[in-house]
Amino acid sequence: MDATTTVALAPAPPPERHDARLAGDLAIWIFILAELLAFGVFFAAYAFARANDPALFAAEQLALNRSAGAINTVLLLTASYFVVRAVHAAEAGRGHRGARWLLAALGCAAGFVAIKLAEYAAAFEAGISLSSSTFHMFYLSLTFFHFMHVLLGMVILGALWVNARRGRYDADNMNGIESGAAYWHMVDLVWLVLFPLVYVIR
């Protein structure tokens, strides 16, 4: 009996099963769930406050810079997409290319910050403040709460970029980049609800 026959008799290896796996470590995901809970409560508070005075909210919502909100949505989505490409590049063993994607994501995030600061400056100039109306109180506090998360997200993306440039991430070392990516995607995810809720639904 030569080798080929023996091989023929050997049972076929089981198909490669991709076991269910959470991308990133448990600690970051517990943190993400806590943040989603906080934002969820905030969104509900806004929605039910609006229910008490829909006309006021509709009138003051019209004065918001919706285009700034839409461009910021595009910037956050594009940053998220670049982060996905960075994770894929690391997974494929091309960590340095991943660094370039992360830098592009940071650029989009910086664009979001610039537009948001300009939006706030125009709002304050128009006399909008935390006490000028219930709508303005929610608009400023909700978007500022999110803005803080964008800034933290940029610090995390910066750390990922430094590590990726040093070639720290590959198929066997994905935990750091997946954890940082998950946080950034959460910042994008909550904005996908915040933008229609605050800027558009009336």
Partner: peptide, 16 residues
């Protein structure tokens, strides 16, 4: 939009 980000970008389509 949120579901797309959750399942694909956050890779939760492959999560428990």
């Amino acid at each position: 939009k949120g579901a797309a980000v959750i399942l694909d970008f956050m890779a939760l389509a492959r999560a428990p």
